[in-house]
Amino acid sequence: MNRSLHLFAGIIGSFALSCYALVLLPQQQLGGLQPQIAEDEGKIVDIYPVKNVSHEEGRAIYQSEGCFYCHSQQVRDEQNGTDLARGWGVRRTVARDYIFEKTPVLGSMRIGPDLANVGSPKWRNENEGEYATYKPKKRDASWHLLHLYAPRTVIKSSNMPPYRYLFETKKISGQRSVDALDLTGLDAPEPGYEVVPKPEATKLVAYLLSLDKSHPLKEVKGSAPEVAAK
């Protein structure tokens, strides 16, 4: 009996340790994180991150379609890879960046590029140096919609599946819709028809364009807020 007491004590104790070290302690340390507040002469002039619920629907589509199985949303520092040199961000991401995300989509695979800052105008997926032989068009909403519908029209040999079910092909009645895709070649619909995004696609793209974690933070070296640095 003594021996099984030791066995039980060992099993329960080791589980408690595991749970304490990897769940409770981190929750204690990170659970109370607040947005960074920069003060300028007593006035709050800068708050990051901000709670933004307007893109929750787009974010839900990002999750239900499983975008995060191929795209991460975390930028590592120089010691941990070439994320910054690639242009996926201007600084590494830290826990504070995610405090308003109930279920952050950090991702564990990169079959596609990191999207933590894809909505930032500075985001790029290739080096500006001498190796850059490929220059993308501006990544605005119409670029993203075209990319979702037929990835290979904008990225040669893209490995992303086409998300045609987020769009519908309609007969053009009178005027062509403003949001109809500019498709050519094999992807183009029959004459007299047009491809327009369903609300899901529009919301997803709005969510993607909202992604920007490039705001300076105190805890990330080299990115101290300008106001605080003054």
Partner: peptide, 13 residues
Amino acid sequence: GVTGVVQSLVAAW
């Protein structure tokens, strides 16, 4: 009360 990266940590654990 469990949000942000702690969620990802729980899933990894």
